[in-house]
Amino acid sequence: MEVRTIKVFTTVDNINLHTQVVDMSMTYGQQFGPTYLDGADVTKIKPHNSHEGKTFYVLPNDDTLRVEAFEYYHTTDPSFLGRYMSALNHTKKWKYPQVNGLTSIKWADNNCYLATALLTLQQIELKFNPPALQDAYYRARAGEAANFCALILAYCNKTVGELGDVRETMSYLFQHANLDSCKRVLNVVCKTCGQQQTTLKGVEAVMYMGTLSYEQFKKGVQIPCTCGKQATKYLVQQESPFVMMSAPPAQYELKHGTFTCASEYTGNYQCGHYKHITSKETLYCIDGALLTKSSEYKGPITDVFYKENSYTTTIK
């Protein structure tokens, strides 16, 4: 009895394709271990004539594949690729409408935090270190965002349907971005203890939790000093293409032309909904596939993004 075979390709990165001759009487799992086709788990399936010449994702289970996976995804987590594939199996079914010149995501599976993050990423200057993220990001900007969303979920250790947080998501993504040249110098002034300067680099240099107003941050924000008295913390120097200011959701007025974009969060910790506000020729609110415009805006804002380049204080 002759062994019926077909020729397929296996890959971990969709760049390096490895030619395989597979036995049609055995499952993919018996031949390769966990195997995925377009995100779908085909591990328990036997090869079919229609699979001839198709590319299958496999887990990096030998040295060659491990090197290829690390170079593309910059992670050695053995569960990463499987999590990416199972997320992709959902995100490829989502709709990605162009809204006001940006790629958004039609609401499904509690994905409003991903839509808000995706919209924000198209408006701030950011370059990702893992080629996987950078490639998928370019495709997302062009309207094909399924891979990018699935990668975000995998890097953030999230599953489809789980509630997510924009600030946490951005923080994970910033860790995989090139923020080497970003720098922030802060000064804390206390009447009792004097003053202390701190220099922050990388992710810490672009994120701040405690106030939404970048102007206020430049002037000074009140913080408790270690001595128990009130101290003032203010920005001395900022070198970065953008800054992200966050605070627990509270009524906040966004003035046209003073910011790049913002995240609105309605609801409580267990259950809520994100919308995205962007400042173009007027203010726009993007909620999944829905767009509304207004000249002014007041609502429960939790993150505001500002364009920056270089700032030095005039406070002496």
Rank of each mutant, 00 (worst) to 15 (best):
F148T: 05
Y137I: 09
K275L: 06
Y208H: 10
N147T: 10
G228Y: 02
A231C: 04
E144K: 12
T302K: 01
Y252T: 11
D38Q: 11
M207I: 04
K191R: 10
E281S: 01
C271P: 01
E71C: 12
G53L: 13
E125M: 00
D41A: 13
I315W: 15
V21H: 14
Y214R: 04
R66W: 12
S310E: 00
P47T: 05
T292C: 10
N268T: 12
P131I: 07
T199A: 15
W107T: 00
P60I: 08
Q195C: 15
G39L: 07
D77W: 05
K293F: 07
N187S: 12
D62T: 14
T198D: 07
V236G: 04
V185A: 06
Q30A: 15
L17S: 09
T260P: 02
N147L: 03
H176R: 11
S279F: 01
A69D: 09
P78F: 04
V203L: 07
Q98C: 15
N49T: 13
P60V: 08
Q195T: 15
N49E: 12
K95D: 15
G33P: 08
K95F: 11
K307L: 13
Y252H: 10
C285Q: 09
K233C: 15
T232Y: 09
T260G: 03
A40H: 12
D165F: 00
E215F: 05
T302E: 00
H273V: 06
G210K: 05
T55M: 09
C190F: 07
K293E: 14
A262T: 04
R141Q: 14
T64S: 13
Q31K: 11
M244R: 05
L133T: 05
K307H: 01
A87E: 00
I6W: 08
T278G: 01
A108D: 08
S171L: 11
Q31R: 13
K183D: 02
G267H: 04
V203S: 10
M207S: 05
A247P: 04
I15C: 10
A177T: 05
P131V: 04
C225R: 03
H256T: 13
H74C: 02
K158Y: 01
Q216E: 14
I152G: 03
K255A: 07
Q31I: 10
F128H: 03
T232P: 04
K298P: 05
P130C: 11
A115D: 03
L81T: 08
Q216S: 10
M245P: 00
P224A: 12
P97H: 06
K92C: 10
W107L: 04
T302P: 03
E296D: 15
E281A: 02
S50C: 15
M245E: 03
S25P: 05
S213H: 01
T302W: 00
E308G: 04
F148N: 07
P78L: 12
L37G: 09
D62G: 12
T64G: 12
T169Y: 00
P78M: 08
H276I: 03
Y284A: 05
P248W: 05
K275R: 15
Q122I: 00
L235D: 02
K7Q: 15
I277G: 00
R83F: 05
N129K: 15
T91R: 08
E144R: 08
L283Q: 01
K201D: 06
L283A: 03
D13V: 01
Y113N: 02
K316P: 15
W107R: 00
C285F: 02
L291T: 12
L151F: 06
N100P: 01
Y36V: 04
V188T: 15
M85I: 11
C190G: 01
N61E: 11
K127T: 14
L118H: 00
L283E: 00
Q238H: 00
Y311S: 07
T292E: 10
A145V: 00
L133S: 03
H273G: 00
A146G: 00
Q251K: 07
A87Q: 14
T211F: 01
Q122T: 05
T76R: 12
S294A: 13
G288S: 03
